Amino acid sequence: METKHVSRFSPINLIIISLFYFKCNINHEPLTIPENNQLDKVEVQVRETIKKMSDLILKNPNDVQRWANYAMTLDVHDFTLEAIIAYQKAESLDENNFRWPFFQAIALQSLGDEKNLELYRKSIKINDGYTPIYNLYGKALYEYGYIDSSTVYFLKAIQKFPCSPTALNHLAKTYLIENQLELADSILIKMKECGRAGKTYYTLLSDLSRKKGNATLSMDLATKANNMLAPKNIMYNPIYDQVTDMGVSSAWYRYRAQKYFNNQVYEKAIKEYTELIKIKPLPIDHFNLGLAYNKIGQLKMAENHYKICLNMNPNYADALKKLAEIFRDKGDLKKYYFYLNEYGKVITEAVN
Protein backbone atom coordinates (compact mmCIF):
# COMPACT_ATOMS: atom_id res chain seq x y z
CA MET A 1 0.00 0.00 0.00
CA GLU A 2 2.82 2.43 0.83
CA THR A 3 5.59 3.14 -1.63
CA LYS A 4 8.39 0.84 -0.56
CA HIS A 5 9.50 -2.49 -1.93
CA VAL A 6 8.73 -4.41 -5.06
CA SER A 7 5.51 -6.27 -4.38
CA ARG A 8 2.01 -7.11 -5.50
CA PHE A 9 0.72 -4.40 -3.17
CA SER A 10 2.81 -1.51 -4.51
CA PRO A 11 3.13 0.15 -7.93
CA ILE A 12 6.89 0.49 -7.62
CA ASN A 13 8.68 -1.79 -10.07
CA LEU A 14 12.19 -1.66 -8.67
CA ILE A 15 13.76 -0.63 -5.38
CA ILE A 16 17.02 -1.65 -3.74
CA ILE A 17 16.34 -3.46 -0.53
CA SER A 18 18.87 -3.46 2.25
CA LEU A 19 18.49 -5.70 5.25
CA PHE A 20 19.53 -5.25 8.83
CA TYR A 21 20.17 -8.38 10.87
CA PHE A 22 19.89 -9.11 14.57
CA LYS A 23 20.78 -12.46 16.05
CA CYS A 24 18.34 -14.23 18.31
CA ASN A 25 19.68 -15.88 21.41
CA ILE A 26 18.26 -19.29 20.43
CA ASN A 27 19.36 -21.20 17.32
CA HIS A 28 21.08 -18.04 15.97
CA GLU A 29 18.15 -17.28 13.66
CA PRO A 30 18.22 -13.91 11.91
CA LEU A 31 15.52 -11.41 12.78
CA THR A 32 15.23 -9.29 9.68
CA ILE A 33 14.07 -5.74 10.27
CA PRO A 34 13.61 -3.10 7.54
CA GLU A 35 16.10 -0.26 7.71
CA ASN A 36 15.02 3.05 9.24
CA ASN A 37 14.99 4.85 5.88
CA GLN A 38 12.40 2.31 4.70
CA LEU A 39 10.35 2.42 7.88
CA ASP A 40 10.28 6.22 7.66
CA LYS A 41 8.18 5.90 4.51
CA VAL A 42 5.29 4.16 6.26
CA GLU A 43 2.70 5.46 8.71
CA VAL A 44 3.71 5.64 12.35
CA GLN A 45 1.41 2.83 13.49
CA VAL A 46 3.01 0.51 10.91
CA ARG A 47 6.49 1.30 12.26
CA GLU A 48 5.35 0.80 15.83
CA THR A 49 3.68 -2.54 15.01
CA ILE A 50 6.78 -3.89 13.24
CA LYS A 51 9.02 -2.79 16.12
CA LYS A 52 6.69 -4.28 18.73
CA MET A 53 6.51 -7.61 16.89
CA SER A 54 10.28 -7.80 16.44
CA ASP A 55 10.74 -7.19 20.18
CA LEU A 56 8.35 -10.04 20.98
CA ILE A 57 10.33 -12.41 18.74
CA LEU A 58 13.59 -11.47 20.45
CA LYS A 59 12.02 -12.49 23.75
CA ASN A 60 10.86 -15.85 22.38
CA PRO A 61 12.43 -16.71 19.01
CA ASN A 62 10.91 -20.20 18.93
CA ASP A 63 7.30 -19.01 18.97
CA VAL A 64 5.97 -19.88 15.50
CA GLN A 65 2.91 -17.65 15.80
CA ARG A 66 5.05 -14.60 16.56
CA TRP A 67 7.17 -15.30 13.49
CA ALA A 68 4.05 -15.87 11.41
CA ASN A 69 2.40 -12.64 12.54
CA TYR A 70 5.63 -10.73 11.95
CA ALA A 71 6.03 -12.23 8.47
CA MET A 72 2.44 -11.44 7.48
CA THR A 73 2.72 -7.88 8.81
CA LEU A 74 5.92 -7.28 6.83
CA ASP A 75 4.35 -8.88 3.76
CA VAL A 76 1.15 -6.85 3.74
CA HIS A 77 3.11 -3.60 4.16
CA ASP A 78 5.35 -4.42 1.20
CA PHE A 79 8.55 -5.44 3.01
CA THR A 80 8.49 -8.53 0.83
CA LEU A 81 12.04 -9.88 1.10
CA GLU A 82 12.11 -9.45 4.86
CA ALA A 83 8.73 -11.19 5.03
CA ILE A 84 10.05 -14.18 3.06
CA ILE A 85 12.86 -14.68 5.59
CA ALA A 86 10.34 -14.56 8.45
CA TYR A 87 8.06 -17.05 6.62
CA GLN A 88 11.04 -19.37 6.26
CA LYS A 89 11.60 -19.25 10.02
CA ALA A 90 7.89 -19.95 10.66
CA GLU A 91 8.13 -22.90 8.29
CA SER A 92 11.18 -24.30 10.06
CA LEU A 93 9.23 -24.24 13.33
CA ASP A 94 5.98 -25.58 11.83
CA GLU A 95 6.86 -27.84 8.90
CA ASN A 96 3.39 -29.37 8.54
CA ASN A 97 1.56 -26.08 7.99
CA PHE A 98 1.05 -25.41 4.28
CA ARG A 99 0.52 -21.67 4.82
CA TRP A 100 4.20 -20.79 5.23
CA PRO A 101 5.50 -22.18 1.91
CA PHE A 102 2.23 -21.02 0.30
CA PHE A 103 2.70 -17.41 1.45
CA GLN A 104 6.36 -17.56 0.42
CA ALA A 105 5.30 -18.74 -3.03
CA ILE A 106 2.86 -15.84 -3.44
CA ALA A 107 5.53 -13.36 -2.35
CA LEU A 108 8.16 -14.83 -4.68
CA GLN A 109 5.68 -14.90 -7.57
CA SER A 110 5.07 -11.18 -7.05
CA LEU A 111 8.84 -10.65 -7.40
CA GLY A 112 9.02 -12.75 -10.58
CA ASP A 113 11.16 -15.41 -8.90
CA GLU A 114 10.59 -18.87 -10.44
CA LYS A 115 11.42 -20.50 -7.11
CA ASN A 116 7.75 -19.92 -6.31
CA LEU A 117 6.91 -23.04 -8.34
CA GLU A 118 8.78 -25.32 -5.95
CA LEU A 119 7.03 -23.74 -2.97
CA TYR A 120 3.58 -24.13 -4.54
CA ARG A 121 4.34 -27.83 -5.07
CA LYS A 122 5.48 -28.10 -1.47
CA SER A 123 2.24 -26.46 -0.27
CA ILE A 124 0.12 -28.85 -2.32
CA LYS A 125 2.05 -31.83 -0.94
CA ILE A 126 1.19 -30.69 2.61
CA ASN A 127 -2.42 -29.77 1.84
CA ASP A 128 -3.92 -30.89 -1.45
CA GLY A 129 -7.44 -29.81 -0.54
CA TYR A 130 -7.11 -26.04 -0.79
CA THR A 131 -8.37 -25.04 -4.27
CA PRO A 132 -6.70 -21.58 -4.59
CA ILE A 133 -3.26 -23.25 -4.55
CA TYR A 134 -4.10 -25.01 -7.82
CA ASN A 135 -5.20 -21.74 -9.43
CA LEU A 136 -2.15 -19.81 -8.26
CA TYR A 137 0.24 -22.61 -9.20
CA GLY A 138 -1.48 -22.98 -12.57
CA LYS A 139 -1.21 -19.25 -13.14
CA ALA A 140 2.49 -19.28 -12.22
CA LEU A 141 3.17 -22.21 -14.55
CA TYR A 142 1.34 -20.39 -17.33
CA GLU A 143 3.40 -17.23 -16.78
CA TYR A 144 6.65 -19.20 -17.08
CA GLY A 145 5.51 -20.93 -20.26
CA TYR A 146 4.66 -24.35 -18.82
CA ILE A 147 1.30 -24.33 -20.59
CA ASP A 148 0.55 -28.07 -20.53
CA SER A 149 1.34 -28.30 -16.82
CA SER A 150 -0.76 -25.23 -16.07
CA THR A 151 -3.73 -26.85 -17.84
CA VAL A 152 -3.40 -29.91 -15.59
CA TYR A 153 -3.65 -27.78 -12.46
CA PHE A 154 -6.51 -25.62 -13.74
CA LEU A 155 -8.42 -28.82 -14.50
CA LYS A 156 -7.73 -29.99 -10.95
CA ALA A 157 -9.03 -26.64 -9.70
CA ILE A 158 -12.37 -27.01 -11.48
CA GLN A 159 -12.68 -30.56 -10.20
CA LYS A 160 -12.65 -29.07 -6.70
CA PHE A 161 -14.48 -25.83 -7.52
CA PRO A 162 -16.33 -26.21 -10.86
CA CYS A 163 -17.09 -22.50 -11.25
CA SER A 164 -13.60 -21.17 -10.51
CA PRO A 165 -13.34 -18.07 -12.73
CA THR A 166 -9.53 -18.13 -12.77
CA ALA A 167 -9.37 -21.74 -13.94
CA LEU A 168 -12.18 -21.38 -16.48
CA ASN A 169 -10.69 -18.22 -18.00
CA HIS A 170 -7.22 -19.72 -18.37
CA LEU A 171 -8.51 -23.00 -19.77
CA ALA A 172 -10.65 -21.23 -22.38
CA LYS A 173 -7.72 -19.01 -23.41
CA THR A 174 -5.33 -21.96 -23.62
CA TYR A 175 -7.69 -24.09 -25.70
CA LEU A 176 -8.32 -21.18 -28.08
CA ILE A 177 -4.58 -20.55 -28.52
CA GLU A 178 -4.07 -24.26 -29.24
CA ASN A 179 -7.08 -24.29 -31.61
CA GLN A 180 -8.82 -26.95 -29.54
CA LEU A 181 -12.14 -25.35 -30.38
CA GLU A 182 -14.45 -28.04 -29.02
CA LEU A 183 -12.74 -27.93 -25.65
CA ALA A 184 -12.83 -24.12 -25.68
CA ASP A 185 -16.53 -24.25 -26.50
CA SER A 186 -17.19 -26.65 -23.60
CA ILE A 187 -15.41 -24.34 -21.16
CA LEU A 188 -17.34 -21.30 -22.40
CA ILE A 189 -20.61 -23.20 -21.94
CA LYS A 190 -19.49 -23.96 -18.38
CA MET A 191 -18.66 -20.28 -17.80
CA LYS A 192 -22.17 -19.28 -18.85
CA GLU A 193 -23.74 -21.97 -16.66
CA CYS A 194 -21.72 -20.64 -13.73
CA GLY A 195 -22.99 -17.10 -14.30
CA ARG A 196 -19.62 -15.87 -15.60
CA ALA A 197 -20.97 -14.33 -18.82
CA GLY A 198 -19.18 -11.02 -18.47
CA LYS A 199 -16.62 -9.09 -20.50
CA THR A 200 -14.04 -11.92 -20.49
CA TYR A 201 -16.66 -14.46 -21.56
CA TYR A 202 -17.84 -12.42 -24.58
CA THR A 203 -14.25 -11.60 -25.57
CA LEU A 204 -13.38 -15.30 -25.61
CA LEU A 205 -16.63 -16.20 -27.35
CA SER A 206 -15.84 -13.58 -30.00
CA ASP A 207 -12.44 -15.18 -30.57
CA LEU A 208 -14.04 -18.64 -30.81
CA SER A 209 -16.56 -17.37 -33.41
CA ARG A 210 -13.74 -15.82 -35.43
CA LYS A 211 -11.78 -19.07 -35.41
CA LYS A 212 -14.92 -20.91 -36.55
CA GLY A 213 -15.20 -18.51 -39.52
CA ASN A 214 -18.20 -16.47 -38.34
CA ALA A 215 -16.76 -12.94 -38.69
CA THR A 216 -20.09 -11.12 -38.29
CA LEU A 217 -20.96 -12.85 -35.03
CA SER A 218 -17.40 -12.35 -33.82
CA MET A 219 -17.66 -8.58 -34.40
CA ASP A 220 -21.04 -8.39 -32.65
CA LEU A 221 -19.69 -10.26 -29.63
CA ALA A 222 -16.55 -8.10 -29.54
CA THR A 223 -18.71 -4.96 -29.57
CA LYS A 224 -20.79 -6.34 -26.70
CA ALA A 225 -17.62 -7.12 -24.73
CA ASN A 226 -16.21 -3.63 -25.32
CA ASN A 227 -19.36 -2.09 -23.84
CA MET A 228 -19.05 -4.09 -20.61
CA LEU A 229 -17.04 -3.23 -17.51
CA ALA A 230 -13.73 -5.01 -17.04
CA PRO A 231 -13.93 -7.72 -14.35
CA LYS A 232 -12.20 -7.14 -11.04
CA ASN A 233 -8.98 -9.10 -10.88
CA ILE A 234 -9.79 -10.82 -7.59
CA MET A 235 -8.91 -14.45 -6.94
CA TYR A 236 -10.78 -16.39 -4.28
CA ASN A 237 -8.19 -17.07 -1.57
CA PRO A 238 -9.67 -16.91 1.94
CA ILE A 239 -6.55 -18.25 3.68
CA TYR A 240 -4.62 -15.24 2.35
CA ASP A 241 -7.06 -12.96 4.19
CA GLN A 242 -4.92 -13.83 7.22
CA VAL A 243 -2.21 -11.72 5.62
CA THR A 244 -4.38 -8.78 4.59
CA ASP A 245 -5.97 -8.76 8.04
CA MET A 246 -2.54 -7.86 9.46
CA GLY A 247 -2.48 -4.54 7.62
CA VAL A 248 -2.48 -1.56 9.99
CA SER A 249 -1.96 1.22 7.47
CA SER A 250 -4.88 3.54 6.67
CA ALA A 251 -5.06 2.03 3.19
CA TRP A 252 -5.58 -1.46 4.58
CA TYR A 253 -8.25 -0.37 7.06
CA ARG A 254 -10.02 1.33 4.15
CA TYR A 255 -9.66 -1.77 1.96
CA ARG A 256 -11.10 -4.11 4.58
CA ALA A 257 -13.89 -1.70 5.52
CA GLN A 258 -15.02 -1.44 1.91
CA LYS A 259 -14.78 -5.20 1.46
CA TYR A 260 -16.99 -5.81 4.48
CA PHE A 261 -19.42 -3.09 3.38
CA ASN A 262 -19.71 -4.58 -0.10
CA ASN A 263 -20.39 -7.98 1.48
CA GLN A 264 -23.05 -6.39 3.73
CA VAL A 265 -21.10 -7.22 6.90
CA TYR A 266 -21.80 -3.76 8.25
CA GLU A 267 -20.70 -4.28 11.86
CA LYS A 268 -17.20 -5.30 10.72
CA ALA A 269 -17.13 -2.43 8.23
CA ILE A 270 -17.93 -0.04 11.09
CA LYS A 271 -15.08 -1.49 13.16
CA GLU A 272 -12.57 -0.99 10.33
CA TYR A 273 -13.79 2.52 9.47
CA THR A 274 -13.67 3.47 13.16
CA GLU A 275 -9.99 2.48 13.32
CA LEU A 276 -9.33 4.22 10.02
CA ILE A 277 -10.67 7.61 11.10
CA LYS A 278 -8.33 7.54 14.10
CA ILE A 279 -5.37 7.48 11.70
CA LYS A 280 -5.97 9.37 8.48
CA PRO A 281 -9.63 10.25 7.93
CA LEU A 282 -10.94 11.57 4.64
CA PRO A 283 -14.44 12.98 4.08
CA ILE A 284 -15.40 9.81 2.21
CA ASP A 285 -14.40 7.68 5.22
CA HIS A 286 -16.80 9.52 7.51
CA PHE A 287 -19.48 9.35 4.84
CA ASN A 288 -19.02 5.59 4.40
CA LEU A 289 -19.00 5.06 8.17
CA GLY A 290 -22.25 7.01 8.32
CA LEU A 291 -23.62 4.87 5.51
CA ALA A 292 -22.72 1.67 7.40
CA TYR A 293 -24.49 2.95 10.52
CA ASN A 294 -27.41 3.91 8.28
CA LYS A 295 -27.62 0.32 7.02
CA ILE A 296 -28.04 -1.11 10.53
CA GLY A 297 -30.53 1.54 11.62
CA GLN A 298 -28.25 3.56 13.92
CA LEU A 299 -29.42 6.85 12.45
CA LYS A 300 -27.96 9.15 15.11
CA MET A 301 -24.48 7.77 14.53
CA ALA A 302 -25.05 8.00 10.78
CA GLU A 303 -26.15 11.62 11.15
CA ASN A 304 -23.04 12.46 13.20
CA HIS A 305 -20.63 11.09 10.60
CA TYR A 306 -22.46 12.70 7.68
CA LYS A 307 -22.09 16.03 9.52
CA ILE A 308 -18.37 15.42 10.16
CA CYS A 309 -18.00 14.66 6.47
CA LEU A 310 -19.62 18.00 5.67
CA ASN A 311 -17.38 19.82 8.15
CA MET A 312 -14.43 18.47 6.17
CA ASN A 313 -16.06 19.11 2.79
CA PRO A 314 -19.19 21.33 2.82
CA ASN A 315 -19.90 20.42 -0.82
CA TYR A 316 -20.12 16.66 -0.27
CA ALA A 317 -23.43 16.18 -2.10
CA ASP A 318 -24.12 12.59 -1.01
CA ALA A 319 -23.82 13.52 2.67
CA LEU A 320 -26.29 16.39 2.18
CA LYS A 321 -28.70 14.04 0.44
CA LYS A 322 -28.45 11.41 3.18
CA LEU A 323 -29.06 14.00 5.91
CA ALA A 324 -32.11 15.25 4.01
CA GLU A 325 -33.42 11.66 3.92
CA ILE A 326 -32.83 11.15 7.65
CA PHE A 327 -34.69 14.32 8.63
CA ARG A 328 -37.48 13.58 6.16
CA ASP A 329 -37.99 10.19 7.81
CA LYS A 330 -37.91 11.84 11.25
CA GLY A 331 -40.58 14.27 10.15
CA ASP A 332 -38.30 17.28 10.72
CA LEU A 333 -39.34 19.13 7.57
CA LYS A 334 -37.35 22.28 8.38
CA LYS A 335 -34.04 20.40 8.38
CA TYR A 336 -35.18 18.20 5.53
CA TYR A 337 -35.78 21.20 3.25
CA PHE A 338 -32.55 22.84 4.44
CA TYR A 339 -30.36 19.89 3.46
CA LEU A 340 -32.37 19.23 0.31
CA ASN A 341 -31.86 22.84 -0.73
CA GLU A 342 -28.11 22.65 0.00
CA TYR A 343 -27.91 19.42 -1.98
CA GLY A 344 -29.61 21.13 -4.94
CA LYS A 345 -27.14 24.03 -4.81
CA VAL A 346 -24.14 21.71 -4.87
CA ILE A 347 -25.52 19.65 -7.74
CA THR A 348 -26.36 22.79 -9.75
CA GLU A 349 -22.88 24.23 -9.23
CA ALA A 350 -21.31 20.92 -10.26
CA VAL A 351 -23.34 20.85 -13.49
CA ASN A 352 -22.50 24.47 -14.32
Results as ranks from 00 to 15, higher is better:
106 I>T: 05
265 V>F: 09
227 N>S: 15
63 D>E: 10
301 M>Q: 13
47 R>Y: 04
220 D>L: 15
319 A>R: 04
338 F>C: 08
234 I>M: 02
117 L>W: 05
185 D>F: 14
241 D>G: 04
299 L>G: 09
39 L>R: 08
252 W>V: 07
270 I>H: 02
226 N>E: 09
49 T>W: 07
313 N>F: 12
118 E>W: 10
221 L>T: 01
12 I>Y: 11
198 G>E: 01
106 I>K: 03
297 G>S: 06
136 L>Y: 01
221 L>N: 03
212 K>Y: 09
222 A>Q: 03
331 G>D: 03
158 I>L: 08
318 D>A: 11
287 F>L: 07
4 K>M: 11
134 Y>T: 01
254 R>Y: 03
236 Y>I: 11
157 A>Q: 02
170 H>P: 05
331 G>A: 06
235 M>T: 14
18 S>I: 14
330 K>F: 11
186 S>H: 04
244 T>A: 00
178 E>L: 14
161 F>S: 12
187 I>L: 12
167 A>S: 01
59 K>C: 06
295 K>V: 05
135 N>K: 04
147 I>P: 02
245 D>G: 09
148 D>A: 11
194 C>A: 08
122 K>V: 08
243 V>Y: 03
340 L>H: 14
19 L>F: 11
99 R>Y: 14
327 F>L: 13
164 S>A: 11
24 C>S: 15
218 S>M: 12
28 H>P: 07
201 Y>N: 01
266 Y>M: 05
241 D>H: 10
232 K>S: 10
308 I>L: 15
123 S>W: 04
125 K>N: 04
122 K>W: 07
111 L>A: 03
214 N>S: 09
278 K>W: 01
245 D>H: 05
18 S>Q: 12
347 I>L: 14
129 G>P: 03
223 T>S: 11
249 S>A: 07
190 K>M: 05
25 N>Q: 15
314 P>G: 02
312 M>W: 13
228 M>K: 09
304 N>K: 12
295 K>W: 05
41 K>T: 10
159 Q>A: 12
163 C>D: 08
311 N>Q: 15
103 F>K: 01
80 T>R: 10
315 N>A: 13
244 T>R: 00
93 L>V: 08
4 K>N: 09
2 E>H: 15
323 L>P: 00
335 K>H: 10
328 R>A: 12
90 A>M: 04
141 L>K: 04
201 Y>C: 11
115 K>G: 06
89 K>N: 12
240 Y>G: 01
191 M>L: 12
245 D>Q: 10
255 Y>S: 00
273 Y>I: 08
208 L>S: 02
325 E>L: 15
95 E>G: 04
134 Y>N: 02
62 N>L: 15
143 E>V: 15
7 S>T: 12
205 L>I: 08
288 N>I: 10
276 L>M: 06
52 K>G: 06
313 N>C: 08
151 T>K: 12
29 E>N: 13
108 L>K: 06
14 L>K: 09
270 I>S: 01
206 S>Q: 03
228 M>I: 03
240 Y>T: 00
183 L>Q: 14
1 M>Q: 11
257 A>N: 01
210 R>G: 06
204 L>D: 00
134 Y>I: 05
